[in-house]
Simulated scan of single mutants.
Amino acid sequence: MVSSFVTLYKMSYDTEHVRNSGDTPGMITGIPTFTELLENPSLAALYTSIKRSESTTGPELIEAMNVSKKTVYDYLHKLEQAGLVSKVAEEAGTAVYTAEEFELTLTVREAEVSITPELIEVIAHKDEYPAIERVLEDHGIVTFALAHDLVKEHSEGDVTIRQIASLTDLSPGIAYDLVEALYSILDLGDSESAPTTYTPGDFDEDDGDLLEELTDK
């Protein structure tokens, strides 16, 4: 899977979260908390909860989260140490936290992947949507980030689900399930919209134009 997907990136894709980076790096050094955000949906959910509420306290998070009190405070400490949340005030002796914006760029093989709060919000739901976990586990963060961006293009009518599947090396079924999941999580489209399916002709006629749009000339 990895080798065939790297071939796609040699065509220099440029989407919101995935770009061709040119030279292959010798080593990737990450920050442990950022890595855990990609792997631990509970930690991702806690960060997302703080970000969505703009400011919150430990007791409020304990009420909102499905984890123990100790885990909430362990996560808060971890996120604060990493600079992802900050204490901004105190209310009756209780710390008030706010989430910091961030963009972390990772270089994976020949692709640059931007990790943003929006991606973390989706990852926070991976236990609820098997397609998210399957794409992350079987294909990795590069494929997931590219699929995320293509799903947003799908919501604007720019690509079909079959094109998403082909461009990411996902099966059409997994691509459809991922589109459904992201439509729900990110509230894409209007209240009556749903992911549209495809016919064989969709991909055959439009694939060349799509590749030209996503390829640096």
Results as ranks from 00 to 15, higher is better:
Val2Ser: 13
Tyr9Gln: 14
Tyr9Pro: 01
Ser12Ile: 04
Ser12Cys: 11
Thr15Asn: 08
Thr15Met: 05
His17Thr: 04
Asp23Cys: 02
Asp23Pro: 02
Met27Arg: 14
Pro32Asp: 13
Thr33Gly: 10
Phe34Ala: 01
Glu36Ile: 00
Glu36Phe: 02
Pro41Asn: 07
Ser42Tyr: 07
Ala44Trp: 00
Ile50Met: 01
Arg52Val: 11
Thr56Ala: 10
Thr56Leu: 06
Gly58Asn: 09
Ile62Ser: 10
Val67Phe: 00
Lys70Thr: 14
Tyr73Trp: 10
Tyr75Pro: 03
Leu76Lys: 08
His77Gly: 14
Val88Gly: 09
Ala92Glu: 14
Ala95Met: 05
Ala95Phe: 09
Val96Glu: 11
Val96Cys: 06
Val96Pro: 05
Leu104Lys: 12
Thr105Ile: 10
Glu110Gln: 13
Glu110Trp: 03
Ala111Trp: 01
Ser114Trp: 02
Ile115Ala: 00
Leu119Lys: 04
Ile120Gln: 01
Glu121Gly: 15
Val122Met: 03
Ala124Ser: 15
Ala124Thr: 07
Ala124Lys: 09
Ala124Tyr: 06
Glu128Ile: 03
Glu128Lys: 12
Tyr129Ser: 08
Ala131Arg: 05
Glu133Ser: 13
Val135Gln: 02
Val135Tyr: 02
Leu136Thr: 02
Leu136Gln: 04
Glu137Thr: 13
His139Arg: 15
Phe144Ser: 04
Ala145Cys: 07
Ala147Met: 08
Ala147Lys: 10
Asp149Glu: 09
Asp149His: 05
Val151Met: 05
Glu153Leu: 13
His154Met: 14
His154Gln: 15
Ser155Arg: 05
Ser155Asn: 03
Glu156Ala: 08
Gly157Val: 01
Ile161Pro: 02
Ile161Trp: 03
Arg162Ser: 13
Arg162Thr: 09
Gln163Glu: 15
Gln163Trp: 01
Ile164Gly: 06
Ile164Val: 14
Ala165His: 06
Ala165Pro: 07
Leu167Trp: 07
Leu167Asn: 12
Thr168Pro: 08
Asp169Thr: 14
Ser171Val: 10
Ile174Pro: 06
Asp177Gln: 14
Asp177Leu: 05
Leu178Met: 02
Tyr183Met: 01
Tyr183Pro: 02
Tyr183Ile: 00
Leu188Pro: 08
Ser193Tyr: 01
Thr197Val: 06
Thr197Gly: 14
Thr197Trp: 09
Tyr198Leu: 07
Asp202Met: 01
Phe203Thr: 12
Gly208Tyr: 08
Leu211Glu: 10
Leu214Pro: 03
Leu214Gln: 03
Asp216Ile: 04
